[in-house]
Amino acid sequence: MFEARLLRSSILKKVLEAIKDLLTQATFDCDDNGIQLQAMDNSHVSLVSLTLRADGFDKYRCDRNISLGMNLSSMSKILKCAGDKDTVTMKAQDNADTVTFVFESPNQEKVSDYEMKLMNLDLEHLGIPETEYSCTIRLSSAEFARICRDLSQFGESIVISCTKEGVRFSASGDIGSANIALAQTASVDKEEEAVVIEMEEPVTLTFACQYLNYFTKATSLSPQVQLSMSADVPLVVEYRIPDIGHIRYYLAPKIDD
């Protein structure tokens, strides 16, 4: 028996928003520690890694490891039926071919359950090595979303260049070019608005705008985002989900042939 309950459905709704444009289907691997999801987009350019720890749920029970293969657009349709303040419970029997979502209103006066067919997904899993990155940049997630959106107007790629002085995002194309430079902040009133850079070596890498914009669908999950870069390896865009886990997106760079 698997059962996971969240007091607020909004977390799960936001998680779905953060992955559903990038992935059509994915397996939720559930064990004692919580729920893990790892999946590549259809073009195998990026990889999503989601962790929701058992201790972040209000109730969590997983008697046997279970993999729930889900169609994400169907799951998203179901989660849209939950009110933001509803409690959500995901349930599946061992070896089940369906998963059930139960939504309960705060006063318990409305209880809905939705049963969804599971899919047998034979997806490739990748081992992600522990990596020391040359640069890590922490900034407001809303600011990062804004930068990606603004620069997307200029071209298909964004160049991210990180030095000790700051981080620079650039794009160029038919209409011209754009550069946004962020300096490391000296002091801020709100911690989540700070730009914090840790740099061992300067790094400049080029990435596809389209994917960066997909990743920013996670903005509402966290006030801050962390970018980790090293030369010639995938960028990591990490959103920490308060009290329960994180979502990490890995994006392969564009490299000069």
């Binding site: 350019v45 990748l126 081992g127 090595p129 995938p234 042939d257």
Partner: peptide, 14 residues
């Protein structure tokens, strides 16, 4: 000539 790399080449297949 800048080309988009695939992600699989950077990680090990399990």
């Amino acid at each position: 000539n800048i080309k988009q790399k695939g992600i699989t080449g950077f990680f090990t297949k399990l």
